[in-house]
Simulated scan of single mutants.
Amino acid sequence: MINILVTGANGQVGSELRELSKKYAYNFFFTDRDALDITDKTAVEAFVQKNSITTIINAAAYTAVDKAEDDKENADKINHLAVKYLAEIAKVSNIALIHISTDYVFDGKNYKPYTEEDTTNPNGVYGATKLAGENAMREANPKNSIIIRTSWVYSSFGANFVKTMLYLGKERESLGVIFDQVGTPTYARDLAQAILDIMPKIQNNTVTIYNYSNEGVLSWYDFAKEIMRMAKIECEINPIETKEYPTPATRPYYSLLNKAKIKNEFDIMIPYWKDSLDKCLRVMGERQ
Rank of each mutant, 00 (worst) to 15 (best):
E234D: 14
L20P: 05
E215F: 08
S145Y: 05
I4G: 11
Y253F: 13
P248I: 01
Q12D: 10
Y111N: 12
I2M: 12
M1F: 11
T115M: 11
V92G: 04
Q203S: 13
K23R: 13
S155Y: 02
A132Q: 12
I95H: 06
F28I: 13
S255R: 12
D107V: 04
Y221F: 12
D66S: 00
N144P: 07
A192W: 00
L277F: 02
D222G: 03
A194R: 03
Y254G: 04
T120I: 02
I38W: 07
D32M: 08
V44T: 00
S255I: 04
C280M: 15
I100L: 15
R149P: 05
A128N: 07
D76K: 11
S145A: 09
A64K: 15
Y254W: 11
T186M: 05
A68Q: 01
A192F: 04
P271K: 09
F161S: 10
A188S: 14
G158V: 10
T186N: 09
K279L: 14
F28D: 10
S155E: 00
A25D: 15
N258L: 06
D118F: 06
K67S: 09
E116P: 12
S255V: 08
D275I: 09
V44M: 01
P122R: 01
K23T: 12
I237F: 02
I268V: 06
I95D: 04
V283N: 12
N121E: 07
A140C: 04
E244M: 13
N144G: 07
T115W: 07
N74F: 10
Y187K: 08
G8D: 00
R229L: 11
I2D: 14
Q288E: 14
I233C: 02
F106K: 06
T250I: 14
K112D: 08
S52T: 13
L257A: 02
D71F: 01
G169R: 01
F223E: 06
I237Q: 01
L36Y: 02
N205S: 14
D222S: 06
D180V: 12
V6T: 08
P185G: 04
P113M: 10
L36W: 05
A249L: 01
E226P: 02
L20T: 05
K112Q: 13
K109H: 09
A25N: 15
K279I: 12
L20M: 03
N205E: 15
V105S: 04
L191N: 04
S174K: 11
W220P: 00
A87P: 02
W152F: 15
L17T: 06
K91L: 14
P248C: 00
N51Y: 14
F30L: 09
L256V: 14
E19A: 13
S151V: 10
T129M: 00
L281N: 02
L5S: 08
Q181H: 15
T31I: 13
D107S: 12
C280N: 12
